[in-house]
């Protein structure tokens, strides 16, 4: 039974992503959106944590929120898939349930 975890808070300001990663099991998915997209940025002090979590969890990031914040695609950690709003909907539908770490 797969869960889509969504995180919309900056990992530098809130513990939402940390909490999410504590409970996200292997095979589940994490979608970063709104200020959550900063977790997808290369070269930060969160990068190692995200990369290590990405070994067992598939990470997605919402493209329009990256663009709004001036983060080019090549600044996104390799292996994190960039999706649009339609992709967000698809992920929600394909998953058994959604857990929002607001």
């Amino acid at each position: 039974m797969s869960i889509l975890h969504t995180v919309n808070k900056s990992p530098f300001e809130k513990s939402s992503l940390d909490s999410c990663l504590k409970y996200a099991k292997g095979g589940s998915a994490v979608l970063l959106y709104e200020d959550g997209v900063y977790a997808a940025l290369k070269g930060t002090n969160m990068e190692d944590k995200v990369k290590s979590a990405a070994q067992g969890i598939k990470f997605y990031v919402l493209g329009p929120d990256l663009k709004a914040r001036g983060i080019a695609d090549d600044r996104v950690i390799d292996g994190i898939a960039i999706v649009d709003y339609a992709g967000f909907v698809d992920l929600s539908v394909e998953s058994d349930k959604v857990s929002a770490w607001v």
Binding site: S10, Y38, P64, D65, K67, R69, G70
Partner: peptide
């Protein structure tokens, strides 16, 4: 992050 270059908000 407020000062990041290349912000394009049309999509949001």
């Amino acid at each position: 992050f407020e000062l990041k270059k290349d912000q394009e908000t049309a999509g949001i």
